[in-house]
């Protein structure tokens, strides 16, 4: 009897799991079906060899947005990686266990705050500050980098922290027994030992930064030109899709889907890289 019931539960869980994967598969298929014709008809040249995006003239150069996406991601990493890793080191090695047990779930909770909230704070508080200190429109690469840098902190901190906490005690003991200070132990043994985990965290954070849409729409200004400095406004690939998809038709629509394919491939590569690195880790 019990056995029968268990079988039903098992089967239904299987169906749920399977359908989730199936839906994801359908979405992927859909994106490729919509975007691939554009790439097949035009090659990648029409997307990549032009700095001009003006769908009404039939120009679909994604270079400005590509530069926007990459520069903001880079900026976010410059801010987020040192801060995040430093925070993970503090929590793993220097804070008391009680403090860690309080802070760790709180940091993980930060990842759950809707991105529109981050975008809103960036727009209302950060952008005016940037405008008055650095000039420019305020809604800029710099502003978006700071907002995204903060948004990727939870990812980087929690994955780096897990990597540090998973290290065997014997590494630390061996180092301390040689007379190393706690800080020397961290930089000389623990960080190198946890480097693959930390790198995986960084890559996942990077994926998050590239994929983020709502917050960047709110703080970048969304202008479609190649930015000339970090206080210029810009537009990202994701923002471009979100902003224009609502009214795009025909070739324009196809071009946006083609952009989505490029993003998709990029994110997949980053994730595979992260997984490879995590798997390769030896203890």
């Amino acid at each position: 009897m019990k056995n029968h019931q268990e079988k039903i539960i098992e089967k239904s869980i299987l169906i749920v799991a399977f359908s989730t994967v199936f839906i994801l598969f359908l979405i992927t298929l859909f994106i490729f079906k919509e975007g691939l014709p554009f790439i097949l008809n035009n090659g990648l040249t029409r997307l990549f060899f032009s700095t001009n995006w003006s769908p009404s003239d039939g120009s679909y150069g994604i270079i400005p947005m590509l530069i926007g996406s990459l520069s903001i991601t880079f900026g976010a990493l410059i801010l987020g990686v040192p801060l995040g890793v430093a925070c993970a080191i503090y929590l793993a090695e220097f804070s008391s266990k009680t403090l860690r047990n309080i802070l760790k779930p709180m940091i993980e909770l930060l990842a759950g705050i809707p991105s529109v909230v981050y975008g809103f704070i960036g727009m209302i508080f950060l952008a005016p500050v940037i405008r008055s200190y650095f000039g420019g429109p305020g809604l800029s690469i710099l502003t978006a980098s700071i907002v995204l840098g903060i948004m990727i902190l939870p990812t980087i901190i929690s994955i780096s922290l897990d990597a540090l906490l998973m290290l065997p005690r014997s590494y630390k003991e061996g180092s301390m027994a040689l007379g190393a200070t706690q800080w020397q132990t961290v930089t000389g043994v623990l960080l190198p030992a946890a480097r693959s985990g930390i790198l995986a965290g960084v890559i996942l954070g990077m994926g998050r930064a590239i994929g983020e849409t709502m917050a960047v729409i709110m703080v970048t200004g969304n202008s479609v030109k190649v930015p000339s400095s970090f206080i210029d406004s810009t537009r990202t690939l994701t923002a471009n899709i979100a902003l224009e998809m609502g009214y795009a038709i025909g070739e324009h629509r196809q071009a946006l889907f083609a952009t989505a394919i490029i993003l998709f491939v990029f994110i997949i590569i980053l994730n595979i890289l992260a997984m490879k690195i995590i798997k390769k880790r030896r203890i």
Binding site: S170, Y171, G174, S175, A177, P192, A193
Partner: peptide
């Protein structure tokens, strides 16, 4: 100096 029960070279 101390040598431990389980050899503990650093992962370097």
């Amino acid at each position: 100096g101390m040598v431990f029960q389980r050899p503990n070279p650093f992962p370097l």
